[in-house]
Structures are given as structure tokens and as C-alpha cells.
């Protein structure tokens, strides 16, 4: 499903963020990518959605050669991948429902489809009761679950989450992990980027560790303590 083949990413002018990274992730997997700040985790995530292009090597997602994707095709790729990035929060002036609907509106979905799907994904993250609220009326964990709902609205085969539990406390973090595990149970491949020990230990699935832009370890049923 996702294959990185000897991928190197050098930022201008000569900062090597990823070096000769090769990995393969199969459909339906739940993979955590961990590593210290600056290890190249976000860079890896950006390569998967063609937000950055590899300097060398090949990135392929669901058969697409992502590194060689034309500008026109990038949006089509992104409709296949649900993305959660810390930089893209909720729009404060839109309600929960509108925030999730927005992701469908901008790709031209019909009203009927929006009315149909938005409540479904809100139910998946357990927020169907709070559809009318605004982001400021939600806890941090709830807000983040709305972001997950928004990422799920295209019914993507892959969900890519970069530090989705970033500033959350233990309880809220637990909610997010549960939501992701639930989504994974429906068959969606999950790629979870994190540096949070509790998260990795709670998930107890495959863990890829990055260190200085290289793969340091790749363990099935990994634990944070072992990984580092």
C-alpha cells in the first residue's frame, strides 16, 4: 500500500532530513512512527501526501508514484488519505458539523452526501451529540476528535496523523488512541507519528523508529522503551 524505496530528502540548501529510508506498510496496518524532535517524522509524513518531494528514491502510495505526481493529481491523492497535522486546526467560526462538512464541500460533494456522511463520521469519533457546538466550546481532546472526523470524511484508505495527541492530557490522549484504533478496525490503514511514550505503549502495534533521518528500528508490537 505504502512503499518508500531508498528515499532521501534534503532541504535547501543541504540539510538532510531523511537519508536512504526504505519501508513498506500494508493495507489495514496500524504503524506508529516515533523518534526525537528533528528526526524527520513530519518530513516523512509530508512526503506521503506530496507536500514535499523526495530528493532521491521513490515514494509510492496505493500505486501512485507520489514523488512524480503532477500538480493536478496532488488533490486526487489527498482525497485518498485522511491527514491530521497540528498546523491545520478547526476553523473557529464554523460549528463542528460545518468544520467536517467543509472538507467535503471543497471537493464538490453534494448536499445530500454531506448530510449523509458527516453525522456518520461524527458518530465514529463519538461527537454526534455535539455537532452544533463551536470549537471553543469543546475540550482539546474533543477538538482533536473533530479533526479526525474531518480527516475521515472522504472515507480514506489511509489515515495519517502527525502528533495528534500533541498537547493533550492522558485522558484525552486515551480518547484519541481509542478513536484511531476504532477507525483501524474498519480497515483503514493508520500511520501515527508521535513522540509520546504512553501512546506507543497503549497501541502495542508495529513501531518504526527514526533517528537522524534514518530508520533506527522497525518492530512489530514494539514498545517505546525498547524502541529508543
Amino acid at each position: 500500500m505504502i512503499v518508500l524505496d531508498h528515499v532521501t530528502k534534503v532541504y535547501h540548501p543541504n540539510h538532510v532530513a531523511l537519508q536512504d529510508v526504505s519501508l513498506a506498510i500494508g493495507a489495514g496496518e496500524f504503524v506508529s512512527i516515533i523518534g526525537q524532535s528533528g528526526a524527520g517524522k513530519t518530513t516523512l509524513a509530508k512526503l506521503l501526501i506530496a507536500d514535499e518531494r523526495p530528493t532521491q528514491g521513490k515514494v509510492s502510495v496505493g500505486g501512485w508514484d507520489v514523488g512524480a505526481l503532477s500538480v493536478h493529481d496532488v488533490p486526487l491523492l489527498r482525497r485518498q488519505i485522511g491527514v491530521i497535522f497540528q498546523d491545520y486546526k478547526l476553523l473557529p467560526k464554523k460549528s463542528v458539523f460545518e468544520n467536517v462538512a467543509f472538507a467535503l464541500e471543497v471537493i464538490g460533494a453534494s448536499r445530500a452526501r454531506i448530510r449523509d456522511i458527516v453525522p456518520q463520521v461524527l458518530r465514529v469519533v463519538g461527537l454526534e451529540e455535539k455537532a452544533g457546538r463551536f470549537p471553543t466550546q469543546l475540550s482539546g481532546g474533543e477538538q482533536q476528535r473533530v479533526v479526525i472526523a474531518r480527516a475521515l470524511v472522504h472515507q480514506p484508505k489511509i489515515l495519517l496523523a502527525d502528533e495528534p495527541t500533541g498537547n493533550l492530557d492522558t485522558l484525552n490522549t486515551r480518547d484519541i488512541i481509542d478513536a484511531l484504533l476504532k477507525v483501524n478496525q474498519f480497515g483503514t490503514t493508520i500511520i501515527l507519528v508521535t513522540h509520546n511514550r504512553e501512546v506507543v505503549n497503549a497501541v502495542h502495534r508495529r513501531v518504526i523508529t527514526l533517528k537522524n533521518g534514518q530508520i533506527h528500528s522497525d518492530q512489530h508490537q514494539g514498545k517505546y522503551a525498547l524502541a529508543m
Binding site: 488533490p75 491527514v83 497535522f85 491545520y88 486546526k89 471543497v106 471537493i107 472522504h154
Partner: peptide
């Protein structure tokens, strides 16, 4: 800019943005 960022993230076409 926030909306634009989200639009691009969720795969809105450049023309739409």
C-alpha cells in the same frame, strides 16, 4: 490562510482554492 491550508490538505483542486 487557515481555510486555504485545510482545503489543500483535504484535496481541493487548485482551481477551487
Amino acid at each position: 490562510r487557515e481555510e486555504i491550508g485545510i482545503m489543500r490538505l483535504v484535496g481541493a483542486s487548485s482551481a477551487f482554492v
